[in-house]
Simulated assay, not measured.
Amino acid sequence: MTKILRIDTSIKGPYSVSKKLAEKITAKIGGDVTVRDATALPVIDGAWIAAAYTPAADRTPEQKAALALSDELIAELKAADVVVLGSGVYNFGVTGPLKTWIDQICRVGETFKYGENGPVGLVGNKRVIVAYASGGVPVGSAYDLATPYIRQVLGFVGITDITVVAAQGVNVDEAAALANADAQIAALAA
């Protein structure tokens, strides 16, 4: 059975278009689903960084506790076959909760390492479907800072199979934006 990790990152709760798209995408693919609400994740801090850069064998109990959630998030990511990533666009970029999830899962020695020729992703290539929702920022436009960032950071950890399902222009014509996204979802391979 396909293992799906769905990450919800919108602060709009039940009114979130990206969350609704992510739910539809998850239903289309089908499988064993783990849902992670990134709005509940804590931001990393100095203690987290110190713990992350301390060799595992040398970590104090406090450092291990500081990384426990990160370890859990990384395990979820590595266990998934497919990641459905809800991504609203706030001020041209990703949401704060999405950035927080990214900060929690990007760890040297766990999801990437540095080799002779630069960074090497350790997650393994997974299928990622981004549920992109914007009020008026088209995917790939000069104003879209979200999707290039998502592609960059996922590539950094080794994930390059990325599809974007977009409901763009929700504030211009919501019905048309949602119909277009629904057509993209219908065309996805399960």
Rank of each mutant, 00 (worst) to 15 (best):
K3H: 05
L5G: 00
D8N: 14
D8L: 09
K12Q: 15
P14T: 14
Y15M: 14
Y15D: 14
S16D: 00
V17M: 06
S18I: 11
K20V: 15
K20H: 09
L21F: 04
L21S: 06
A22P: 02
E23M: 03
I25N: 10
I25P: 10
I29R: 06
G31C: 08
V33I: 11
V33G: 03
T34I: 09
T34W: 00
A38L: 02
V43I: 14
D45S: 12
W48G: 07
A51K: 12
T54I: 10
P55W: 08
P55I: 12
A57M: 12
A57I: 09
R59P: 13
T60K: 11
Q63T: 04
K64I: 03
A65P: 05
A68D: 08
L69E: 15
S70F: 03
D71R: 04
I74A: 04
I74L: 08
I74G: 05
E76T: 05
K78P: 04
A79E: 09
A80K: 10
V82P: 14
V84P: 00
L85W: 02
G88K: 01
G88E: 07
G93W: 00
G93A: 12
T95I: 01
L98G: 02
K99R: 13
K99H: 07
T100S: 00
D103S: 01
Q104T: 10
E110Y: 01
T111F: 06
K113I: 13
N117W: 06
V120N: 02
V120W: 04
V123N: 01
N125E: 15
N125I: 12
K126H: 03
R127D: 06
Y132G: 00
Y132R: 02
A133E: 09
G136Y: 02
V137M: 01
V139S: 05
S141T: 08
Y143W: 05
D144H: 10
A146C: 07
A146Q: 10
Y149F: 15
I150H: 03
R151P: 08
F156Q: 12
I162H: 12
A166Y: 01
Q168Y: 04
V170H: 04
V172K: 11
D173L: 07
E174R: 15
E174C: 11
A175M: 11
A177W: 01
A179S: 14
N180T: 15
A181Y: 06
A183D: 10
I185G: 10
A186W: 05
A187H: 12
